[in-house]
Amino acid sequence: MLRRKGKLQTLARLFEIPQDIVLDLPRITMLGNKQLLVENHRGIIEYTPSLLRVKFNQGELVIKGSALSLSSFQTEQILVEGTVREVKYDI
């Protein structure tokens, strides 16, 4: 499996393809501490106004804060708004 992953990374670099696409990795974009865009997710594990856990193929993202809300929830992306205090990626 690791050998295959290494070959995919090499091909991604060779053809200048973003690795998140080739390796099915999440893309996380944070705008200050007010918005967080999570792409390439596999669903929500837990959601409260102070905690959001998002599932990925490899691990999960834990977002802690206050007044967290899902302003957009689509098949491939989630937009979280509120005051983000902590973001942690657990494998």
Rank of each mutant, 00 (worst) to 15 (best):
G65H: 12
Q58R: 12
Y89R: 06
E46D: 06
S66Y: 08
T48W: 07
T75R: 15
S69P: 07
S69D: 10
V87D: 01
T48K: 11
L51W: 02
S69R: 09
Q77T: 06
I78A: 11
V62N: 01
K55V: 01
E86V: 08
E60R: 06
Y47T: 04
T75I: 13
L61C: 04
T75E: 12
V80M: 03
S72I: 10
T75L: 15
E81D: 15
F73G: 02
R53K: 15
G59A: 07
Q58F: 10
V62R: 03
L61W: 00
L79T: 14
K55E: 07
E86F: 09
V84M: 08
S71C: 04
L70I: 08
Y89W: 04
S72A: 14
I78H: 07
G65D: 12
E86R: 14
N57P: 06
E46G: 04
A67C: 08
A67H: 11
Q77R: 15
S69T: 14
V84T: 08
E46P: 01
T75A: 15
E81N: 14
E86H: 14
I78N: 11
K88G: 06
E76A: 06
S69F: 09
V80T: 04
S66M: 08
I63P: 03
Q74A: 10
P49D: 07
E81C: 14
S69Y: 12
R85T: 08
L68N: 11
Y47N: 06
E76C: 01
V80N: 01
F73R: 12
L51P: 05
L70M: 13
V84I: 15
Y89P: 00
L70K: 02
S71Q: 06
S66L: 04
S66P: 03
V87H: 01
L52M: 10
L61M: 07
G59T: 04
S69Q: 14
Y89T: 00
K88C: 05
S69M: 12
E46L: 09
T48A: 07
G82H: 12
R53D: 01
V87S: 02
E76N: 12
V84F: 12
S72E: 14
Q74C: 02
N57F: 03
S69I: 09
V54R: 01
G65K: 10
F56Q: 01
K88L: 12
S72Q: 15
A67E: 13
P49N: 03
Y89K: 05
R53C: 06
S66C: 08
L68M: 09
L70N: 04
T83C: 09
A67S: 14
K64C: 10
